[in-house]
Design a protein around this nucleic acid. Structure first.
Lengths: 151, 151
DNA sequence: ACAATTTATATCGCGCACGATTTAATTACA
DNA sequence: TGTAATTAAATCGTGCGCGATATAAATTGT
């Protein structure tokens, strides 16, 4: 047998972390042409999805949901603000926190964005069941990894 | 029912792309403390894994395996070179391409890196079977998405 | 009330990651 | 053979993503 277990272990394709890494980039790439049409980047789109689901969130709240630091979100949100999609205002009840609210334009963008997920699911070639299972397993994996970080 | 199908659709957690996105970051984060010890970043580590598996590759070859552009790899490989882990030399048979070869130091690093995957698998809390299935499904997903891009 | 601590966001530097473009070498083919 | 087309890397600009640090506001403990 040519593949000893050690050699076997070193194959990139055997690394779960690489499959996740490359699948993540692959998603980024199919989303790009669709998101270009509505002027969003992929992370910006995910933030908008979160805001469409629940408007008027603090930076902190968005960060917790997206697993991102303020050092990532602050500039991203400023870009969304510069593009007229959100407003950033200090919370009068707690001047430390900044509330992010959708502008009318930001709300309106939802309509255009709504058809995107269907296009994507099509491109993945997945049946609903596999997609659901993958989603469930990946969430569990992420939560397991993040658990000690949030404790 | 409070969740209409449209509202339901907008939940971030229902987005497979977000699960992949956040799982990818999660992996990055657990690898970091381990990779810090051997002076590699996560993408650098993946390139090194590829080189440990097969030394003396062209930039192009690495790019195809990792799904990365030369605009990403060139600076990354220069950093590996600056750290004394690889050598970059034009291929005498085809001056267009650059061959990447491990230095002795780069080869030696493999020993230290070999224990990492075990630590990681432990942190994921996955049983082998689930890990294998996830890996298989994600590769299939990635390949399906990349297929039209490589055709 | 007030000093010490905690919390929320922002800033900075570094390293990806990509698209668009450039440069140089090779190949195709008229 | 010589010119056009293709190929391989590199360069540049933009936007993440994070750790370390800074700043300012709120909370805690006395």
């Amino acid at each position: 047998m040519k593949d000893t277990s050690k050699e076997d272990f070193l194959q990139l394709e055997k690394f779960l972390c690489f499959s996740v890494y490359s699948a993540s980039h692959a998603f980024n790439r199919i989303y790009k042409p669709l998101l270009d049409q509505i002027g969003l980047t992929y992370p910006q789109y995910l933030v908008m999805v979160s805001l469409w689901q629940e408007d008027d969130q603090s930076v902190r709240s968005i960060g917790e949901k997206m697993y991102l630091e303020s050092s990532t979100l602050t500039p991203l949100l400023k870009r969304l603000e510069a593009n007229g999609l959100v407003m950033r205002n200090r919370d009068p009840n707690d001047e430390r926190s900044v509330r992010i609210r959708l502008t009318e334009q930001g709300k309106a963008l939802r309509e255009k964005a709504e058809e995107i997920p269907t296009c994507i699911l099509e491109a993945t070639g997945l049946d609903i069941e596999t997609a659901k299972r993958l989603n469930r397993d990946l969430r569990a994996l992420r939560d397991q990894i993040e658990k000690p970080r949030r404790a």
